[in-house]
Amino acid sequence: MTLSEIISSILLISGAVFFLAGTLGLLRFPDVYTRLHALTKADNVGLGLMVVGLALQSESLAGVGKLLLIWLLVMLAGASVAHLIAKGALHRGISLWKR
């Protein structure tokens, strides 16, 4: 196993941990706003780590470019859709969770 393979594995596994944490947050958090918070953070960072991990294994620069593009597009879509869902929830009068 070469050094880049080891680093890539570590990055992929830590990405998976972020996805697991995000899923746990989606299932366990009390209301739509906190769930969105859990999801978007996990998606951005988790996917970012995965993209870097996969980019280390990529054979060509074009492949790295495509992976980065996927990450940027998912971040753009994820952030925008999270905002839209939160706005929709506020419009419907779903109140914020209070302890």
């Binding site: 597009l73 753009l76 879509a77 925008s80 905002h83 839209l84 706005k87």
Partner: peptide, 15 residues
């Protein structure tokens, strides 16, 4: 549309 959806569509449609 809200500013977010507006910007999203402006960025994404050319892509």
């Amino acid at each position: 549309p809200g500013p977010v959806l507006d910007t999203l569509s402006r960025v994404l449609v050319p892509v």
